[in-house]
Simulated scan of single mutants.
Amino acid sequence: MRITIAGGGIGGLATALSLHAAGFGEVVVHEAAAEIRPLGVGINLLPHAVRELTELGLAGRLAAIGVRTAELAYFNRHGQPVWSEPRGLDAGYRWPQYSVHRGALQLLLLDAVRERLGTDAVRTGVRVEGLRHDGDLLVGADGIHSAVRAALFPQEGAPPWNGLVLWRGTTWAPPFLTGRSMIMAGDGTQKFVAYPIGDGRLVNWIAERPLEGEPPERGNWNRPADLATVVAHFADWRFDWLDVPGLIATAEAAYEYPMVDREPLPFWAKDDVVLLGDAAHAMYPVGSNGASQAIIDARVLAHSLATTGSTAAYEELRRPATTALQRANRQQGPEVVMRLAHERAPDGFADIEAVVPLAERAGIAAAYKRTAGFDPAELNERPSWSVR
């Protein structure tokens, strides 16, 4: 089977590696950009995605570029702790959770594809237009502005915007809390996220709030941000353990992005075409799931093709799961604990237990793990999607 992959991002490259591991030898990635460069800022890879990359033989390389996340902690806008939990190996998973630079991960996958499939397996400067291809199957992994998706659903239009804007940046800064903590602070409307990437000295941060008027380009992750504007919105967010405006003001790079997603689709596959990753199910960046879900798509698609000869099992498993996740993220996913704390105690609290009881906080976290596919027991016990 000759397989063409549209898109050389994380999803497309993970698909090439997964197909190769499943025994498919004729796989080519077409990337529209003339050169694949390490763009972007930080992302998180949750244990279910790390499991798949480990089974692809990339555990050592991944450990070399990532910070092994120790905890996830939520705070209100005053810096008071709302909820925290261990992550990765510390939470009983058989695989760690990593915070990595998106570009570094993309180059890691690119190197592995070229090593295993050959230097010609990734062809840059080649754009897949619509549904035209010269293989037996076209995999549309070409992102939120997918040309393949647009050809399948020509009436869809631009991705819908929810009224919020994200500013994403990286800053060289000293460690905070455990040194491997991922933190989120906010009130359900305005939010700040931070975690270390690289060697741990570079802090990735995300600032989020409502935006008045029409947003700039939807789905462009690389639009430069005005740092002074961002600092002004978070000027009083100084905590004992983190100076938020100081972190923003000294960023080495920052980008502006309207929070958009895509509507769930009635189908992903038609004839000799199938969608994957953001092209299939772009979702709000809530719960750190975008890249992880694309990697899981890749593995399940390869397994489906290798074991059944079709994409039907892939779509049957993945489309309902990601649809539920898209909808959960629209409701703030596990981050809803910050909104609840603010609604019930807007000026802060003396005892979080009296505001959002432990059982409620733990239940929210556990429910999201089940929806997103990384409940610890279920993930540890699930059979592998490797086929040989």
Rank of each mutant, 00 (worst) to 15 (best):
R123N: 00
L211N: 04
R223K: 14
L17V: 08
N204M: 09
A6P: 06
W221S: 13
R361M: 06
P346Q: 12
R132D: 15
Q106L: 07
E85L: 09
P215Y: 06
P320A: 02
G42P: 12
E35I: 03
F349I: 01
A367S: 15
V286P: 08
H101F: 04
L325G: 04
P383R: 10
A14I: 07
A253R: 15
I5A: 13
D271H: 13
G118K: 10
A298G: 04
A365Y: 12
I248F: 08
V337S: 01
V387Y: 03
S386L: 15
G373L: 10
P215W: 02
P174F: 10
E263G: 00
G287D: 08
T323D: 06
W83S: 01
W268V: 02
G79Q: 06
A269W: 06
A298L: 04
G179R: 07
L301D: 07
L166W: 13
P376K: 07
A298I: 05
N162P: 09
A147H: 14
L53H: 06
S146A: 09
A306S: 08
V139E: 08
V274L: 10
A22W: 14
G12C: 05
V336Y: 13
Y195H: 11
I197S: 00
E55R: 10
A341E: 00
I5H: 09
A354R: 15
A249C: 02
R319Y: 03
S146G: 11
V100L: 07
L152V: 04
I248Q: 01
I296H: 00
V82M: 00
Y195G: 02
L305Y: 11
G290W: 08
Y257M: 14
D271W: 07
D278A: 08
L110K: 04
R218P: 07
P264K: 04
A235H: 15
V29R: 03
R361V: 04
E35T: 14
E35M: 01
W385Q: 12
L110G: 00
M338D: 03
R2D: 15
E214Y: 02
R327A: 08
L131I: 07
E256G: 07
W95V: 05
N204D: 14
D278S: 11
E360S: 07
R149D: 06
W83E: 10
L109A: 05
V126A: 09
E360G: 09
F349Q: 01
Q331N: 13
S18Y: 03
R238A: 03
V230F: 00
A73G: 03
G373I: 10
A341Q: 00
G373Q: 12
L247S: 03
E381C: 02
N222E: 15
E360N: 10
N329F: 01
E55A: 00
